[in-house]
Every structure is written in C-alpha cells, then in structure tokens.
Design a protein around this nucleic acid. Structure first.
Length: 557
RNA sequence: GCGCUCGUAGCUCAAUUGGAUAGAGCGCAGCCCUGCGGAGGCUGAGGUCGCGGGUUCAAAUCCCGCCGAGCGCACCA
C-alpha cells in the first residue's frame, strides 16, 4: 500500500509553509497540524487545505494572502494536476486524470486488501463487547452493541492494527446464582412437583422450556440431591446451554469472538486477589459498614464504590477491575469496551480503578451505545429480560435478515437514540438501502459474467481510455475507501461505512447508466476492455466495503 | 434533584470534529428503457440546524442558560 494521497498533500503543504517561514514570507513559529479535507463541492477540487485560515490569526495576515504565498512554494507532485487558491483562504488540489486512471490498476492489484492500510505504529487493540450475562437469550438491544463491536473490530484490523475480540462471561456473579435457582425451580416444576421461584427470579418462558429440557436430558437425578448441591449442578448445565445459545445467536448476525473469557477465571488465576492487594497497598481500600470500598473519591469521583460486600462476596465492579487490569497485563496497548447506556454509570469508576492500579486510563476507551427503543407500529415495546417480555435478537434476524440488521445498526453512531419499528423493518425490505448496495454488486458480477461468456480478456485493457465524468467519478469514489478506513479507525466511528457504500453504489449505477460497458461493435473493443477493467475494480471496492460491514456480496439476487 | 448522552427536511439519519451554497435514504411531484440486471438513472418541492445569549475571520459543531427525550445515580450487572 502506498501512502494516501492526502498525507502526501499534507506533507507538501508543510514543506511549503516551512519554506515560506525561511523566506520570511510567513512569521516563524510552530505550525498547526495540517488537515486535508475532501471538499463537498466538486468545483473546489479533490482535496482542500484550510491552513491559511488557521494561520491568519497568529501570523496577523490576510488568509488569502497566506494562501497565495504558499501555493507557489508547493513542491511538484505527479498526482496533482492543479492547485488553486480560493477565498477566503483555501488551497484546493485537483488530481491528474492519468493518475486517477492508473488507480484502477492499483485497486485490482490490491484486490481483497484494497482499503487496508499499512502502518508503522501498529497497535495491539483489545475490544470487548456484548458480554451479556449468560442468563437468557440476547435481545434486540444487544444486537446493536454486537454489530457495532464487530464492525469496529473489522475496521481497526483493516487500518492495520492487531485486534482481539473478546466476550466476558459473567459466570460468577449473583445474577448467575439467581438464574440457577430459577432454573432449578422450573426443573422441579417440570417433574410435576411444586417449587418456588426465587425473589426477582427469571420468569421468562425460556426458563420453563429449559427446565423441561433438563428433565428430558438428565431425568430426575438432580431432584434427589440437596437443594444447594442441585442448584450448583443445574447452574453449570444452564450456563453451558445459555453460552451455546448466545454464541449461535451472535453467529446468526455475523458476530464472532476470538476469546470467551470467564469471570471465574479472574478469581481462579489469582488475578482478583492480586488486584485487591495492589489497591490495598496503594491505600485505595476502605473498610466501612462491614464492606470493603474502593475510595474512588480520592481520584475525584463523587462517591466510593463497594468492592466486597459485607457478606464477603465480591461485586461485579471488583472482578471487572481485576479483569481490565488483566487485559493490559496481557500486553494490549489499548482496550475498547462497548457498553449499553444502562451501564454508563460504570464508566467513570472503571477508569478511576485503572488509574488506581497504575494504568493510564486514557488507554481504556468506553463507547456507550444508546439503547434501542422498540416500536411495533406506533406502540412502544418494552424489552426486559427478567420480566420475560423480550424481542430476541433471533426473532429480529429471522424477520429482517442479518445483512439488513448489520447495515441498519452500523448506520448510526452509537450515541444516537434510535427507534426500531419492527413493523417498518419488515415492510421496508424491498426499498431498503441494503438491497440497493447489494444490487450494485450483483449487477457488477453480472456484467463480468457477460464479459467472460463473450470470451473477453480485459486484463490488458487500456485504462487511459477512461475519461468520461461518470468513469472518473466512480474512480474518485473508490479511492475514498482507504481514507475512510483511516478516519473511522481513528475516531472509532464505523457509521460512515454504510453511507459510503451507498455513495459507491450510486457512483456505479450512474456510470452504468452513462456508459455502455460490453459492446458488440468491433470498433469499441478497446473501450469495452477498459471499462470491464473499471467494473472489476468496482467489484473489488464494493466487495471490500460489504466485507468490512460483515455483509454478503451476492453474485445474483 | 445531580450526572452522562441526544435534539438537523413530513419520517429515519449524515455533515470530513470550527470551514466554502447544511446533505442522503424513505415518502411526495415529474422525467428517462426497440443493447450489458429498472431492485436502476435524472430533476424538483421540502430547513428559524429545539429556544435564547456568547466566543471569532468563520458555529449545526465550542461555552453559558432554558425547553424536551433516553439512560444512569445499589453491598444488581
């Protein structure tokens, strides 16, 4: 992969600015970071730099005058055809047509790696998401975090980082215990006897089914034991069942993990004790009211948090602190967590805990995604696991399909409060942007098939014939993908990808409308070969886009 | 009450993180097929960027205050 053109332009502008300072045309002093933008108005060229505007104040000069002095000092660059200064102080760059045409070759050559970035500062990045208690099926709200996490992971990997996706299994906490007791009660009931559900138990129907399944699979062997022992045994069985269910549900929406990390192992490995000792040694522990507290107020928090209950049981916060410390001990440079908004209160204390154990909290980024408000027609649907009123992730995927789900959830930034109208989601299927993008891919595949059927060999096609605005526009659009991958990875914002995919599809459809690709006229043979080459490049770009989003790229629809 | 997040076209959402005339999809009104997939292309209408102040060459974006929405504020996770 070569350096992105926008970086080369930034370097050129930097050199020009330094040269201007040497000549005294610009006052000496530190230069701000040079940002290269993509102007939205095509009349402003392909790239734009607003450095003169940013410099105007410190230099006490008219920004337009700065731009006019800078422009002639720019070193030559073969990819750039024209540099223009524009009011109130922009420097605009237009790329050379020959360079654009040659990129078609470069894209085909890059193939499935097109859009990937080579980088020197490759980071080891840990990304944890979903991590739902294994006490029930995933619901729609979880789908958003799941898609976001997996999409972000793909983008970070494409941006050249080493990424590990992890699911943290809360198999040690009180919720798991309540679940086990609920399951035990349903199991006993399935045997025809009476048994009381625990306080705040999991009353969802799936637990009843699970109880029956347990009877069918294991008979009444747990009924003979003492209750405590039976609950323990049933808990293990239930945990495995739920994990399997969760894993399959996630797979259905195209989400997989590299590591499934058990909360219990945090205790068994000694990492929990070690972390607590560390906190104690650093003076962050306080005994009060029979419990052990993390003195987060020492770090500017508005309240302390319980680590060990007066019953002696550690809280979720305690094991999570040890778990997160462990991530960094495993050698990750950065950790990214994706939380639902209902866990946002956990963020400040977790960061404070990292600081307390001697880890720079800025190495931990927590993305909080707002919950999905469900609607059925006009009415709000309340999704809650314990009350049993669930719209499951599985139901959603079955209804809408994994591609549409992924596209939809990826489209919006995490912090947006989105409404999901289930009735609308089904209805929309024909006019969905998802199909629009996939249709473009199918159309491309169809054209390439035709080319093959006609026995055309386009690898030697002459790209210099590609001069139609629609052709050049398509190439321009394709070239934005690597830039986009870079910004999305920097800002941790996957939501630009679906929009880009639509733009790319539009650019292709327009080209298709404007330019006949496969012609039977012998005189147009050279043009046919060149355009087939362009179509192949389009396939590369669009397929990569779909792959990054975790969507299928159909050959036919 | 306090904290976090959000408020942009009729609807669902963008806006290159302070830049040039605020853009897409759906919906609405039109137009385009005797050759490669019409699940397509093109044009148009539609905006007090929640409201009010402030910061500066420049604000949807930053600051302050209101209004409204979601989520938190446990010895749950």
């Amino acid at each position: 992969m070569t350096t992105l053109l926008k970086h080369r332009i930034a370097a050129l502008v930097g050199q020009a600015a330094e040269e201007a300072q040497r000549q005294g045309a610009l006052p000496a002093g530190p230069l701000p970071e040079i940002e290269v933008e993509r102007p939205q108005n095509p009349e402003h060229g392909d790239f734009a730099v607003s450095l003169p505007l940013k410099l105007a104040r410190v230099a006490r000069m008219n920004p337009l005058a700065i731009a006019q002095r800078l422009a002639p000092l720019l070193p030559p660059e073969e990819a750039i055809a024209e540099v223009k200064v524009a009011a109130p102080g922009f420097i605009n760059f237009t790329v050379r047509q020959e360079w654009l045409q040659w990129q078609v070759e470069a894209i085909i050559k890059a193939g499935e790696h097109f859009g990937s970035l080579a980088r020197e500062n490759r980071e080891r990045i840990h990304i944890e998401f979903v991590s739902v208690n294994p006490t029930g099926p995933l619901h729609v709200g979880h789908a958003r975090g799941a898609v976001l996490g997996s999409g972000l992971a793909s983008i970070l990997a494409a941006a050249g980082h080493q990424v590990s996706k992890e699911y943290y299994i809360n198999d040690a906490g009180t919720q798991m215990q309540v679940f086990a007791r609920s399951l035990y009660a349903r199991y006993v009931q399935a045997l025809g006897r009476s048994s009381e559900m625990p306080e705040n138990g999991y009353v969802g129907e799936y637990v009843i089914d699970l109880g029956k399944e347990l009877v069918a699979e294991q008979g009444d062997r747990f009924a003979g034991m003492g209750e405590a022992e039976a609950v323990e045994a049933v808990r293990e069985w239930g945990l495995q069942k739920m994990l399997e269910l969760i894993r399959l549900d996630l797979e259905a929406i195209g989400v997989t993990f590299d590591v499934w990390f058990s909360e219990r192992s945090v205790f068994e490995s000694g990492q929990y004790t070690e972390t607590m000792e560390l906190l104690r040694a650093k003076g962050y522990l306080a005994q009060r009211e029979g419990a052990t507290w993390f003195a987060s107020t020492m770090l500017g928090e508005d309240k302390d948090n319980v680590l060990v209950r007066s019953t002696g049981e550690p809280t979720y916060f305690a094991s999570d602190t040890a778990y997160h410390r462990g991530k960094f001990l495993r050698g990750f440079d950065r950790c990214i967590d994706i939380f639902g908004a209902d866990h946002q209160g956990h963020v400040p204390r977790l960061k404070a805990a990292m600081e307390a154990v001697g880890i720079d909290p800025s190495r931990l980024t927590v993305l909080v995604n707002q919950l999905v408000a469900l609607k059925q027609g006009g009415d709000a649907v309340r999704a809650s696991k314990r009350t049993g009123n669930i719209v499951t992730l599985r139901e959603l995927v079955d209804e809408v399909g994994p591609d549409a789900c992924r596209f939809f959830f990826l489209s919006r930034p995490p912090e947006s409060q989105m409404e999901f109208d289930l009735a609308l989601a089904k209805e929309e299927s024909a006019d969905n942007p998802v199909y629009y993008v996939q249709y473009a891919h199918a159309r491309i595949a169809s054209i390439l098939r035709l080319g093959q059927e006609r026995g055309l060999e386009w690898s030697g096609g002459d790209v210099s014939l590609l001069g139609d605005p629609a052709e050049l526009g398509l190439i321009r659009k394709m070239l934005q993908l690597p830039e986009l991958v870079e910004t999305m990875a920097e800002r941790l914002e996957p939501h630009h990808l679906p929009r880009y995919a639509q733009d790319l599809a539009t650019a292709f459809h327009w080209f298709y409308q404007q330019c006949r690709v496969v012609s039977s006229e012998p005189s147009e043979r050279a043009m046919t070969l060149a355009r087939l080459k362009l179509v192949e490049a389009s396939r590369v770009a669009l397929a990569r886009c779909l792959e990054l989003m975790g969507m299928s790229a159909p050959e036919r629809m």
